[in-house]
């Protein structure tokens, strides 16, 4: 019994910290979402569910939710495919391959603000890096990627794939290394070609890794903030106004604390629902093949 109490002592500091800086704030956020709350004057009025009603009826909020969905639907599958392909590429016994792995990781450890500033330059018309290269190839080099309504979203997606390549590569690499070679040998004996054994061995065996990468990438994509804040401020014409940035503006530029809280709960609900959905679609594979 004495031992039973001691365990609590070990987890006490971390648990206390979790209560104060995560659990209590979550609960307090529910409370905030029921009030009209002014950050500057601290005046508050109880509104019940009115903030949620407002959020659901706010076209700008839905625009932001839709933009985030679009961003996630593009950047997550493309980023995962790129990560997997690169993982397969560097999962070969080649001299110096670890140097390449290290290089591929560098964009991910760089500061988000610095990367965002750098990519503003990369996307500049005429003098930007991309347009300079296009100019050399005698292709139209006047596109202002970040100020062009039909391009800005894709510009942010492209950058996110560039930044996220390294971590996704490492995750898939660890998954690939964990696949027993005997499975490939068995597939070969059954006459399976490279493509078939990729489809029937690699992909199913990677299911736990795929699930992990998919959930964390989606959660990250739905909350993206820094690139929007630094590069586009939601523009042009709100085509890149994503929900993480939208809530920030509601709270810190318009000081609408209650509404921002309500909206962040709608976002949270969406994130939880999507994570459960992703678990469901991969559930059978996770049960069938998980070796951990």
């Amino acid at each position: 019994m004495k031992k039973g109490k001691l365990g609590y002592l070990f987890i006490a500091p971390a648990t206390l910290h979790l209560l104060v800086f995560a659990i209590f704030p979550m609960a307090f956020s529910v409370f905030l979402s029921f009030y009209k709350w002014n950050l500057l004057t601290s005046e508050r009025t109880f509104l019940g569910l009115a903030n949620y009603a407002y959020a659901f009826g706010d076209p700008q909020f839905w625009n932001a939710m839709w933009n985030s969905t679009k961003y996630a639907l593009l950047s997550v599958p493309l980023g995962m495919a790129a990560g997997l392909l690169v993982a397969i590429l560097v999962n070969q016994k080649l001299k110096g391959v670890t140097i390449f792995r290290t290089l591929y990781y560098i964009p991910a450890i760089s500061s988000g603000v610095a990367i965002s500033i750098l990519w503003i330059y990369v996307y500049l018309p005429e003098t930007g890096l991309i347009n300079s290269v296009l100019g050399l190839l005698h292709i139209n080099n006047k596109t202002d990627f970040l100020k062009n309504e039909s391009m800005a979203m894709y510009a942010l997606v492209f950058m996110s794939i560039w930044v996220g390549l390294g971590p996704r590569m490492v995750l898939f690499l660890s998954g690939l290394i964990g696949i027993p070679p005997s499975l490939y040998e068995a597939a070969e004996l059954d006459g399976a070609g490279k493509l078939r054994s990729f489809w029937n061995v690699t992909l199913p065996m990677l299911a736990p890794t795929t699930f992990f990468v998919m959930v964390t990438s989606t959660i990250g994509a739905l909350q993206v903030f820094t690139p929007v804040y630094i590069m586009t401020q939601g523009g042009p014409n709100e085509t890149t106004d994503m929900v993480g940035y939208h809530i920030y503006v509601e709270a810190w530029s318009k000081f609408l604390i209650g509404i921002a809280s309500a909206k962040s709960f709608v976002l949270l609900a969406a994130i939880v629902a999507i994570s459960i959905f992703q678990f469901r679609i991969l559930k059978n594979q996770l049960e069938g093949y998980s070796t951990t």
């Binding site: 800086f21 979550m26 905030l32 921002a260 962040s264 976002l267």
Partner: peptide, 11 residues
Amino acid sequence: MFSGPVTQLPV
């Protein structure tokens, strides 16, 4: 996994 979006304001 899930506290990210809702804790910033209260914290």
